[in-house]
Structures are given as C-alpha cells and as structure tokens.
Design a protein around this nucleic acid. Sequence first.
DNA 1: CTACTTACGAAGGAGCGCTTCATTAGTAGC
DNA 2: GCTACTAATGAAGCGCTCCTTCGTAAGTAG
Lengths: 384, 384
Amino acid sequence: MADLRGGDLSRLRQLNSLTAIRALRRAGPLTLSALAERTGLSRPSMKEVADELMGLGWVEEVPPSPGTMGRPARRYRFRADSGYLVGVDIGGHNIRAALSDLDGEILAETRQPVLPDAPLEERLAAIERAVEGCLTLSRTSVSDLWTVAVGTIGVIDVEGRVIYSAAVPAWRDLDLAGRLREMFPCPVLIENDSRLAAMAETRRGVAQGARDVVFLHVGRRMGAGLVIDGKVHRGFGAAAGEVAMLPESRWFDAPEHLNTCACVPEGVAPEDAAGHTLAAARNGDPVAVECVERYVDDLAVGTAAMVLILDPQMVVLGGGFSRSSDVLLEPLRRRLETRCMRMPEVRASTLGDECVVVGAIEYAVAHLDDQLFPPDRGPLPVAR
Amino acid sequence: MADLRGGDLSRLRQLNSLTAIRALRRAGPLTLSALAERTGLSRPSMKEVADELMGLGWVEEVPPSPGTMGRPARRYRFRADSGYLVGVDIGGHNIRAALSDLDGEILAETRQPVLPDAPLEERLAAIERAVEGCLTLSRTSVSDLWTVAVGTIGVIDVEGRVIYSAAVPAWRDLDLAGRLREMFPCPVLIENDSRLAAMAETRRGVAQGARDVVFLHVGRRMGAGLVIDGKVHRGFGAAAGEVAMLPESRWFDAPEHLNTCACVPEGVAPEDAAGHTLAAARNGDPVAVECVERYVDDLAVGTAAMVLILDPQMVVLGGGFSRSSDVLLEPLRRRLETRCMRMPEVRASTLGDECVVVGAIEYAVAHLDDQLFPPDRGPLPVAR
DNA sequence: CTACTTACGAAGGAGCGCTTCATTAGTAGC
DNA sequence: GCTACTAATGAAGCGCTCCTTCGTAAGTAG
C-alpha cells in the first residue's frame, strides 16, 4: 500500500519533474508560466525543472507563439518523438500493428491476413512483417522502439506463455514472450486482447473516464476484459475474464444461434453466417430476429453475472458483432434490466477493429509512466 | 492516475512524517536509529520529524529499553491510544460491536441479540447499546471515538442508504448513514458486511498478503465480498458481489438443500436445520451427505463464475456454515477443479463470527491513513 | 575505575522551492 | 518612428529540509 522509504530532496525534484511531464503530455506545448500554474510550482522552480528535463531530452523548446501581448514566453513541449511504441493485435485471421509516438499518437498502421491454422513460424513471420511495415511507413527503425505491446487471443500466463488457445492451434504452449523478445530489442509486454480492448475503450473510446468497465468481445468467439479502479484487471494467474469457460454462463455456444440460423442462405461461408443473420434481423426478418433474441438471451446470462459480481459503471460491446450493435444493444439492455441490481450503461464500442491495437498502444504508454517513475508498491499491510 | 500538483518542501516533510508513522505502526516502539534506518532518512532528520510528530500528539516517547550496550536510545511509539475506533456488525440476529485503538487492537467487544423482524427503532437502539457497552468496558467516552465503521447486511448505496434487504424488513429504504451520523459525533463509514469480512481475511485472516480475494459468505443467506488489488471492491453503485441475484448462479436457493434435508428430525427450529444437516454429514449420514453434495453443487456454480471472471488468488469460505468447512471445502474444491481455468486456493475463514467486526475495524484503520494524508486521486487519463 | 559501545546534539553545508525586483522583448496607440 | 503598456525573463536573497561530521554523554563489561 505504500513504501516505507522516506523521501530525499532529489525525490521531490523527481516528483515535480514527473508532474511537469504529465502536464505537458496532457496539454501540448505550454509556456513556463502556464506550466508553473498547472503544477502549482513557482516560475523559477519550474524553470529549473524544465532546464533539467531539456538536458535529459524529455522536453524541448518550441518557438514562442506570436501575436501575444508582452514579451514572448518560452514554450516547451514533451518530446513525444524521442521514441516510438508499437502495438500489435494478434487475432485469428489478422495481425494488426500500429506504431505511435510516446504520446500514443498513431503514426502508421498495417494489417497482415493470416490463416487461423497457419503454422507457428508463419504466424511469427507475419507479426514481424506487420511491425516492419509500420517501421517503413513511419521511416523509423527498430532501434527507436521503446516498447512493443502485444494483445493476443488465448489465455496468457503471467510469464507470457500461452496456456490455452482454442482459436489458434499453433499458439498452444508457446512461450510467446520469449519468441517476441528475440524478435525485438526492447521490452515486450503481452496481454490478452480483450483486456487491451477494455483499456482502449476506457482511455480513448466510449468509456472514457469510467473507473470500472466490463468489455464484452462479441464475435465468433466470446471474451471479456475488465477494467477495475481504472486499471486493467489480469487476475492472479492472468486468467481473469474467462467467463465463457463456465457452461452456465451460456457464452460458449451463444454464437451458434447466429451461425445456424435458418435465414442464412445455402452456400454462405460459415464465417459469414452470423453477419448474415444480424443483417437480416436488422431488416426485420422474423426468423433472424428470433435467432438474435436467443443469442442475446445467452449473452445476457454471462454478462449479468459479471455485472452482478462487479457492478461496473459501463458495459461496452465490442468485437466483430458489435458492428451490429443497433440490433443487439436494446435486447441486451432489456434483459439486463430484469437481472441486475443496478443497471450499468450499455454502449457499443467506438473504436471497432482498432480496439486491440489502440489498447496495446495505450498499454505501452501506461507502462512508459512506470519507466519514468517506478511505483514500487510495497507489501500489503497485514495485522501487527 | 496522479495529480498534477507539484510538491513543496513541506509536502516532503508530510510524506516523511507519514512514512515514520507507518513504520512505527507496523513495528511497535522503535529507537531513532532504527526509525532512521527503516525510513532511509538520516538520524538528525528523523529526529526533527519525530519532534514534530510528538508535538502533534501522534507519537510519544517511551522509556529506553535497559540492558543494551552503549548509551540508551530514545524510543518512540505510535500513540494508538490517542483515539479509538468502533466497528459494528449489523446482522440479522445479532449486533456485534468492537472497540479498538488506532492500531486496530481490539479492547472491548459486545453482542446484542436482536430479532430479524424487530422494528427499526429497536434495531437502532440495539446498535447504540452495543457501542455503549464497548465504551463502558473500555472506560472510554463517545467523544474519544475517531471513526465508527459499520458493516450491515443488505445492499447499501454509495450514500449509505439501504436499497435492498431481504433478511431485515425494517432496513428497507433506510438512510442508515444519516441515522448513525445523528448517533455518533464522528465520521461514520458504512459498508456491506461481506466486503468487510473479505477485508478482515486479507488483513488478519487466512488470506493475508493476497491481493485478489473472493470471500464467500455461506450461511442462511449467500453473499460475497471482493478484494481486488488489495482494496475492497465496491463497484460503481456499491452493489458488487450480489451474485445471488442471478438465478443461473444457483445461489439464492442453495441453502434450501440443507434446510429441507430428510435427515433433520421433526421439531428442530428452521434456523437450526442446516446445522443439523452439516453435522449429520460430518458423521457420515448418507442422506445428509447427499444434501450437502447438492448444496455444494449449487454453491460451486456461482463461485466458479466469480473465479473465472476474476481469477483470484484465494477463495475464502466464511459465514455461519463455514464452521462446517471440513465437510464443505473438499467437495467445493473438487467442483472448482473441473470448472476453473486456474484453480485458486480454497480455504476456510479463520476469523469466524468476528469476521465482520474485525473487517469494520480494519476499514476504519485504513480510513485513518487517508485522514493523515488524503490520497487525492485525480481524474483518469484520457486521450489527448 | 577504566575501556568500550552506542546514541545524542550541535554545527556546517548542499539542494530545492519561494518571493521580489529590475530588465527585456514584444504589441498597441499616437 | 516614438512612447506606453504588457508579460515574461533572469538574478538575488531567504527559508526549509535533508545530509554529513564530530565532539560529548550515558550506559554496560571487565
């Protein structure tokens, strides 16, 4: 809960430096006076901090903005371009990558299609190609990368080893962290994709500002990611959110209602069936509507379990089917109304397919803060 | 995630004072040198901090310990007796209260039996009697109380109003916080009893040191309390942990298997039936064993949901039936093994009936830290 | 009674943030 | 083109907090 280390003068400076950087990152270029006001420090002190940060390369001066009264003020900005971050989304059918500056501003994006049953090495090669594509597009080199954050399907343990992956056979028992660390000469972070999507929605999407969020991945497979008290919740063994494993949640087979609907014409590829059903339901096809109702029936059970257990502020619907949120949201809300103690907001993802990549970038950004100022959380308080 | 306020010199001192107090609270009387070593400060600085804390009444000197080499060192201790805390457990049939010093050391305890359907004023009077009993026993007065923390059955909203209470009719729609604040001239904290029990077990009980804990209240009613990342999880509307509301969790009627077992002889009061069944099962009565199996069948469903969703380090079995944990733990473990992704530790509460009161005290103690040094958590970071 | 051990207390110094004030580099008005 | 006004700058001086150092004090051990 807190460390027992007392603070030095230098620690105070460290703290103030961090505060300044945070202010700059949040609000773009700022004059010394503005910085001083925001941080609560005096101008001279702020100046000293700024000089130090410039010396360290965190901050640089930009030309003063003209057209103001009085003597033009120095302006400083966070050097977001002094390093780059990469976020990767390893999905069943696609590998997406994005490259951003240290502010999380995305500068390049790529996508590599890959077959779910592709052999391991092919998959890893696709990852490498996706990242290299980003590097080329943004004219940066791998040595400029500070962090690579990866979101992947499957259950990943705390060491970054894949312990379960129904969708991608080649992924089983893989030491993913190890392989990726060989690939990139910088820290590699690995997380479950739904958790990163949840993070993305809380930081940049529809759930901005919410502290407790449940993200539902609705698509060909079901998944969930939790944000609790503003932080991604991994669980002790990094296996949080695996509701679909519980038969009573009725999540595992839920998508079958959409896949096997009678409204789907012959000859449609199995992976497109659900899309057909949802589209038909939108057009009022009663058979399709019935299938969707049954689907949401099942979806609502596991969702209600999460809502009752966690009482989140918001439930965000994401994943492939969330493109059809117009036919899903209301039925889901109706069912949750009757089941839940306190009804959370239920909204559709605004980030869509980008969700996981953006979440990975945000994860890397959040990790960056830790690099600057490691939050050494001590042991938990116990009885005396 | 962090405030944007920079720090003053005085803030540094504040921080170091807090660190010193924490060290003293954790380790009892300490010499100046020991304190300095633990906090990482120099001796002269530590001395100044100690002097200041003595002036403020937080700390006092105790006689030096004799029999040591060299000049005897001053010793300081946290003045745990400069104020008192009260924890109250408002149950259906009993109201328990405990009084502790600021270290959470319990000095007095009382219990007031009360009928579940007693009218409101009678219940409130019983609370007052319970607390006054503690004050008398410990020869303190209500004006020495710094905080009263209350754990109660029912669902309490964030303002301390009872929004749902199946077990205690008089509790419905009550502004409990308001009534208790009239009663005591100090801050009154209100929480759900299962959450406080979870807190007690993580701080003083079987789950010490675990960051993520699910506490199961198994008894005539079912409840759950969550500790996530070392903190009690309330949820956005303070309604977290209400798994029993979900029919599919099979929690709501689970106790009926024990209440209506054929092994219970005629004439046993309904509230003692479950105890009979559990006792019979322990003695090997096959009918009772069968009932217990069915009970655990149901219990395991909702529990598995929580485990799969949260992936806690430990599940703690508490509440009235946990006295029979010997017949419950193994069956529960067996079922969870087959249902969970990663099996958590499953243990029985070590605090028993005291659980909620102890949790309330711990809650008050934790709140005390905030009084010393308010952790102004700023807004969550959002996209720039 | 002496030697040893350990803590105490005072002195001096460095780092950090604050306030104050004369100075400087712009814009606005004539 | 000159003057008035505005707002930031830079230097000086102060106070607080922490640090190191050293002589002194108060015990125990022999």
